[in-house]
Lab assay of single mutants.
Amino acid sequence: SQQIATAKDKYEWLVSRIVKNHNENWLSVSRKMQASPEYQDYVYLEGTQKAKKLFLQHIHRLK
């Protein structure tokens, strides 16, 4: 749906803004993002596993 696509774009923007180093780990980054509406919306719509998967894809691109 359009809502999910929009939430994903915003979440990816948030991840790219916060995660600048491929050594970052999911636990510390997800804690930093918990207060962000972009993170909350995406997790609400798609779940934590998908959020983690996108985070890991971003990390992989930074290597």
Rank of each mutant, 00 (worst) to 15 (best):
S1A: 12
S1H: 09
S1G: 07
Q2V: 06
Q3S: 11
Q3N: 11
I4M: 09
I4V: 10
I4T: 10
A5S: 12
A5R: 11
T6I: 13
T6R: 12
A7I: 09
A7Q: 00
A7M: 02
A7G: 02
K8V: 04
K8H: 08
D9P: 02
D9K: 13
K10S: 05
K10M: 06
Y11M: 06
Y11W: 03
Y11F: 11
E12M: 14
E12A: 09
W13P: 01
W13C: 15
W13L: 15
L14N: 00
V15C: 06
V15F: 02
S16V: 05
R17M: 11
R17V: 08
R17F: 02
I18H: 09
V19Y: 01
V19P: 00
V19F: 02
K20N: 07
K20M: 06
K20W: 04
N21V: 04
H22W: 12
H22F: 12
N23W: 09
N23L: 08
N23E: 13
N25P: 07
N25W: 03
N25C: 11
W26V: 04
W26R: 02
L27V: 13
L27P: 13
L27S: 14
S28Y: 06
V29D: 01
V29P: 01
S30D: 02
S30M: 14
R31V: 08
R31F: 05
K32C: 04
M33G: 02
Q34A: 12
A35Y: 11
A35W: 09
S36V: 09
S36Y: 15
S36P: 06
P37E: 08
E38N: 04
Y39F: 11
Y39Q: 00
Y39T: 02
Q40T: 08
Q40A: 07
Q40L: 13
D41R: 13
D41E: 15
V43E: 03
V43R: 03
V43T: 07
Y44L: 15
Y44D: 15
L45K: 07
L45Y: 11
E46V: 10
E46C: 13
G47C: 00
Q49L: 10
K50D: 01
K50G: 12
A51W: 03
A51N: 00
K52H: 08
K52Q: 13
K53C: 12
K53Q: 15
L54T: 07
L54H: 04
L56F: 05
Q57W: 04
H58A: 06
H58N: 03
I59W: 02
H60V: 10
H60R: 09
H60K: 15
L62I: 08
K63R: 11
K63N: 12
K63G: 06
